[in-house]
């Protein structure tokens, strides 16, 4: 595990988490503390652990959507913790975040939702709605939808999609960011097994095609074994497992839930 004084550069790890801790206001104990790990660029990492162990909190703290109480996060060679809002927004733009609930804007079209990902590069009204977007952005958004096989639904309202389709649109929105890393917080938790497999296959293919780093939270241990190069496990307020998936099996991972 790398120390906090290591020389960081863009060619280093995509994500470096160093002695991170989080305690919510009024809570008796921290969710977790002293969490440290590196994720090399291009690696696929699964975070597992029982309910309430703080997997989603950890992912959000890595992007400061939730503020950690201690420790540091470095993204693509730059320190994220302690940075002002403007700089933080710029750093976040390199990470596509896919949520469990997909978090699409329900009344807008699929195309408008994908175009929102363009705000990672520039902001303003041209990214608010597909009617205002530039031709290049519209074309790129369609290309992103094509990669998740949903180009034919570009005009449909987001709240008229199935769960699996919504999640794939969320992936297309993340691709629109042209990210270097994708974080996914239980991306298949609300999907049926088949739709879940499709979404995970989409992630794996895109990560491979684009050389993306992938960090995903999952309760599906078979997904962790099949789609990740490495597994991190949270238990009892600390990082209790950090191992290559090749050295793990379903039984050993199940022990994290004991």
């Amino acid at each position: 595990m790398a120390g906090s004084n290591a020389n960081l550069n863009p060619a280093g790890p995509a994500l470096r988490v160093d002695k991170l801790a989080k305690r919510f206001d009024g809570a008796a104990a921290p969710v977790w503390s002293d969490v440290s790990f590196d994720v090399p660029a291009g690696q696929s990492v699964a975070i597992i652990g029982g309910n309430g162990t703080g997997k989603s909190t950890l992912l959000r703290c890595c992007l400061r959507l939730i503020e950690p109480n201690a420790g540091q996060v470095h993204l693509h060679g730059e320190t994220l913790t302690g940075k002002p809002a403007g700089h933080l927004r710029k750093m976040r733009s390199n990470v596509g975040f896919v949520f469990q609930k997909h978090n699409l804007v329900p009344r807008l079209s699929v195309l408008s939702n994908v175009l929102h990902g363009g705000m990672a590069r520039s902001r303003g009204p041209r990214h608010w709605h597909h009617a205002l977007a530039s031709r290049e952005d519209r074309e790129y958004a369609m290309h992103c939808l094509e990669q998740v096989s949903l180009a034919h639904l570009a005009e449909r309202r987001a709240d008229h999609l199935s769960g699996g389709q919504s999640q794939r649109v969320a992936v297309a929105r993340a691709l629109m960011q042209k990210p270097r890393t994708i974080f996914a917080d239980e991306p298949v938790a609300s999907l049926d097994p088949q739709a879940g497999e499709e979404v995970m296959e989409t992630f794996a293919k895109l990560a491979l095609d684009h050389g993306l780093t992938l960090v995903f939270v999952s309760h599906h241990l078979d997904h962790a074994l099949h789609y990740a190069d490495r597994v991190l496990g949270l238990r009892d307020g600390r990082l209790d497992l950090d191992a290559p998936t090749a050295s793990e099996n379903l039984e050993s991972l199940r022990s994290m839930y004991d």
Partner: peptide, 10 residues
């Protein structure tokens, strides 16, 4: 959705 926008960098 507002959290998703914040995560994008909006």
């Amino acid at each position: 959705p507002p959290e998703a926008m914040a995560a994008i960098g909006a």
